[in-house]
Amino acid sequence: MCISGSAFAQTPQYSPHIQVLAASCAACHGTDGNSVGGTPVLAGLDSLHFIRQMKAFRSGERPATVMQRHAKGLTEDEIVGLAAFFATQPRVAGKLPPSVKLEPSHDH
């Protein structure tokens, strides 16, 4: 069931720093970079391409609405670490959670 059962018990492939930082990208790019749509899928992205784009966001060479803010906040080592992380993530289709109708009892 747990496909990505990359248990802690196994040798961790990435430093906890990069693993936790990469997960922070999920709000816009999906779990492990598997976006449900709109934003680019980062999972399986060539690491050199990732690094170039992040540098271009940082310098302003590639105009963006918001990515320049994130790129500027990271160190070069972090960008390289993230590139390696995302390059090795398997691509799986990101899914939306099941929609339901609001139950009338749902009140706070």
């Binding site: 999920a26 816009c28 976006s35």
Partner: peptide, 19 residues
Amino acid sequence: LEADYARYWAQNIWSDVLT
């Protein structure tokens, strides 16, 4: 454009926390 990104943000964070 940013309204599109706002929508993508919502869809991806829902997917991240609820699937």
